[in-house]
Amino acid sequence: MPKPIAQALSRRTATTPEASSIPYWAWLLPVMLVIGAFYIYPIIDALRLAFTDATLTGGAESYTVRSLQRVLSNPALPTILSNTAIFTAASVVGQQLLGLSVALLVVRGERHHLPGMLVLRTIVLAAWVVPGIANGVIWSMLFSESPFGAINGVLRLLELPTVAWLSNPANAMLSAIIANVWQGTAFSMIVLYAALKSVDPSLYEAAAVDGAPAWERFWFITLPQLKAAILVNSILITIQTLNTFDAILALTGGGPGRATEVLSLFAYNTVFYQFDLAGGSALSILLLLISLVLAALYMLFMPKRDM
């Protein structure tokens, strides 16, 4: 490196005496304050409320573990947790598979200079910016079982039997998953598209020279190269799906019965139907714990160099 440039860089990167006299934690103070005020404090307050008998109807609060006991002994909780597990697992798998498929399609299309790839990405992304409530309303019109319901109307035109999309408990869960996957696929597509673009093309060239068929290139090159992105994406969309309740609220309201009531919707109902702030807080903490445990599990599989 030429000497003048090296000197200039040295001047730019050297810490001034004033800067070096400031303790390191002072630099972190602003971000710690923001995180503390807007992230840590609400969690601590929710934790505190979980150990009270606070309600939305007011009155003096006192500290107790009965709210927690009441929530954990609720006979509906196993059903709620089971719904949450099915909804989350199916949504994460569905979003990953569809997101990867669309990303592979776009990358392959770009490699062959096909027109319309940008339009395809934009169309998929459009679903992502739709608010959850609107997503639920859109799909409730599509899945409507009335004589003028959209999907069943098409099935009738094709002289196929109609489907009880929302009134059958099993189908209602499937419908909620489809609506969530439709919305979340775009996010997975973007993450995996970015990862695919960073795969070294020489790996594919070498494989082609060796005569490896497409599925082997996908299995032995693409997937291992995407492992870190897939795991990071899994963490993000798992947490996002666990917190999803607005789309379900608009689509099924959690019904029929409790067939599509997930943990986040149950917490919402606990606060806004029962006015039980303490119970809702306890459920929120439970949701947080589940998210942390799942995130930790995913991290176990993360390649060490990517951590």
């Binding site: 009134s167 059958n168 408990p169 019904g255 029929p256 019965g257 409790r258 067939a259």
Partner: peptide
């Protein structure tokens, strides 16, 4: 509401 949904959807 929950129990009516369960009965009407024939799940209980």
């Amino acid at each position: 509401q929950i129990l009516l949904g369960e009965v009407l959807s024939q799940s209980k």
